[in-house]
Computed example of a mutant assay.
Amino acid sequence: MSDQQPLLAHLIELRTRIVRIVLGIVLCFLGLFHWTSQIYHLMAKPLLDVLPAGSSMIATDVTAPFFVPVKVTMLVAFLLSLPNTMYQIWAFVAPGLYNHEKRLIVPLVLSSILLFFTGMAFAFFVVFPVVFGFMSSITPQGVAMMTDIDKYLSFVLGMFVAFGVTFEVPIVVVVLNRMGLVSLKQLREGRPYVIVGAFIVAAVVTPPDVLSQVMMALPLCLLYEAGILVSMVSNRKKQEVTNE
C-alpha cells in the first residue's frame, strides 16, 4: 500500500477526478445533442411499434417536447461516458488498495457494469415489446392509447433500474459467500424463499400484469442459481490453492 498522502492532496485529487468525470459526461452530451429527437424516438420505439394506426404519444407539458428528449440524451451520455467515470474512480481508489484487493474488485466492478447493462437491454428488447403489446391489446374500444412522453420516460427509467439491479443478484450472492456471511449450503436452502421473494419484488416494481412479473421473477431466480454456480467454482479454486 502506498504511503498516505496529506488530506489536502487527497481532496485536490478527488476534485480533479470529479471534474474529469463531469467533463466526460458533458462532452458526450454535447456530441449527442444534435440527435436528441432521434435518440428519444429510438427509446420510444417499443411503444410506438404497438400503437394502433393513427395513435401517437402526447406531451401534456409545454416544455416536455424539449426537456424529455434532453433528459434521455443525458442518460445516454452518462452511459457512454461510464468507462471514463469508472477509470477516474479506480485511479483515485486503487493506490490505497492491496494487490489481492485489486484482483478481487476489478472483476466484480466490471461484472456489475456488464450485468446492469444486460438487465437494461433485457428490459428494452424483451420486456417492453411484450408489456406494451399486452397493454395495447387490452385497450377497450373507443379508448385511444396515447401515452404522455414524460410519464413514458419515468416508466422506462424505473424499469431500467429495476431490471439492472435485478441482474446484479449473482454479484451479491458471490460477495456474500466470498465474505463468509453465507455458505453454499445456506444458499441452496434459501432457494424457496428466493423464488417467493422474486415474485413479490416483481409484483411491486413491474406493471400489474402476469407477463411482466414472470419476466422479472424468472431471470432473478436463474441469476440466483448462476451466483451459486460461480460461488461453487470460486470455492473450489480457493480450496485447491489452499491445498497446494
Rank of each mutant, 00 (worst) to 15 (best):
I200S: 08
G227P: 04
L218G: 03
Y224T: 02
D209N: 13
G180S: 03
A198K: 09
A162V: 05
I228P: 01
I149H: 08
Y224R: 01
G158S: 09
V214G: 13
R188V: 14
S212D: 10
A226W: 04
E168N: 07
A202H: 04
R188D: 15
A226H: 07
V214M: 15
G197P: 00
F167R: 12
V182Q: 01
V161E: 12
V156M: 14
A217L: 02
A202N: 12
A202V: 09
M216E: 06
A203H: 04
L211D: 14
V182K: 08
V174L: 09
F167H: 02
V205K: 08
M216K: 02
V201Y: 10
D209L: 11
S154Y: 11
E225V: 09
A202M: 09
F160W: 04
A217E: 03
C221I: 14
D148K: 00
A226L: 15
R188W: 12
A162N: 11
V165W: 03
P207T: 06
E189K: 08
V210A: 09
N177R: 14
V196S: 09
G158L: 08
G164M: 04
L153E: 02
L211N: 15
S212P: 00
F199A: 05
I149M: 10
V210W: 06
T147Q: 13
E168Y: 12
V175M: 07
S154R: 12
M159V: 13
F167I: 15
L222D: 08
G197T: 03
K151E: 04
V204F: 13
L176V: 03
V210Q: 07
P192R: 05
L220Q: 00
R191N: 03
Y152V: 00
L229I: 10
T206R: 05
E168Q: 15
Y152N: 02
L211P: 06
V173H: 06
G180L: 02
